[in-house]
Each structure stands twice: as C-alpha cells, then as structure tokens.
Amino acid sequence: MTRPADSFIIFIARIALAILFLWGGAMKLLGYAGFVGYLHSKGVPYASYGAIVATAVELLGGIALVLGVRTRAVAFLLAVYAIATAILGHDFWNVTQAAAQQDAVIHFWKNVAIAGGFLLLTVTGAGRASVDGMRAPRGGGLRG
C-alpha cells in the first residue's frame, strides 16, 4: 500500500518530469518550423511528421503525468522517447568541436537520467494523488 507521504513525493516527481515535457512540447509547437528544420539537420526521415509526433508525445505525455492518467504506460513510453531523443538528438559521438561535444554529452546523459525517472514511475505508478489512484480499489495490496 502506498503511504500518503510516498504519494506526495511521487506527485512531486510527476510534476517535475511533466514540466520539462510540457515546456518542451510548447516550445516545439511555438517554433514548429525551426523544430522541423532541426530534425532535418539531424537526418530524421519524415521530419515534418516526426515533429508532430514529438510535440504530441511531449504535450499529451506531460498532461497525463500531471493528472496521473495511465501513468505506468505513459511513463514507459516517455522513457523510450527520452532514450530515442538522446540517441537521435544528442549524438555526441558525431560531434567534432570540443565544446559542442561536451554539451551533447551532458544532454545525452540528462536524457538517460530522465528515462530512469520514468522507469521508476513505470514501477511505482502514480500514487494516490492521481486519476489512477482514484480508480484503484481501496482494499489491501499495492496501488499504482
């Protein structure tokens, strides 16, 4: 059973992760043409479609995290997304300039760390302070 203090900490973790994705999704939406150009520069095939998918994943995923809706599945999807964006967007092994390479390394490992946070949410679930928590039976046992 999830204790109230644990649920509060899980809620804070969900909000912290969601802010990053809501902000990123909003910036992609507001600067859509620039984001498509960035994806083209990285060699992403069908960049205009990829931009739509990335923006939707970040905005809808962020909203789902805040509300705690299907948190385990959403968190797993966002963990995969964070790793994919690390590999595609922060490919430090292809960067030759030292300062740019160091920046890419930092962002790559930041994405890996974020994926780790999402994997923890995949295991813990949303806690009681969530839509998932309101749907869970109130008897004994583990809750998501």
Rank of each mutant, 00 (worst) to 15 (best):
A18C: 09
S130M: 11
I87E: 06
A99K: 13
M27C: 01
G89T: 00
A86Q: 00
G43A: 08
A98H: 13
G139I: 13
T85L: 10
I87G: 03
A86E: 00
G37P: 01
G62L: 05
H40L: 12
A47R: 02
G140L: 15
N94C: 05
P137Q: 14
V44L: 07
Y46K: 11
V53H: 04
G68W: 03
Y46D: 07
L17M: 10
G117P: 05
A100Y: 06
Q101S: 10
V44K: 02
V95N: 03
A115F: 04
A56D: 08
A64P: 05
G34P: 00
M134D: 11
N111I: 08
V112Q: 06
F118C: 08
T124M: 13
L88G: 04
V66T: 10
Y81M: 09
S41C: 04
A73N: 09
I52Y: 11
A56M: 12
G125V: 07
H90N: 02
I87N: 04
R14S: 02
I63S: 07
F92P: 00
L22P: 04
L67Y: 07
V66E: 05
L88T: 11
G34A: 03
V69H: 10
A126R: 05
I63D: 03
A99Y: 10
R14N: 03
I52K: 09
E58H: 03
G68A: 11
N94E: 11
A86S: 11
D103F: 14
F92V: 00
R14G: 01
A126F: 08
F21H: 11
V123W: 09
L67S: 10
L142F: 14
I83K: 00
A104W: 02
W23D: 10
V44F: 07
A47I: 07
R72Y: 06
R135K: 14
I15P: 03
Y32D: 01
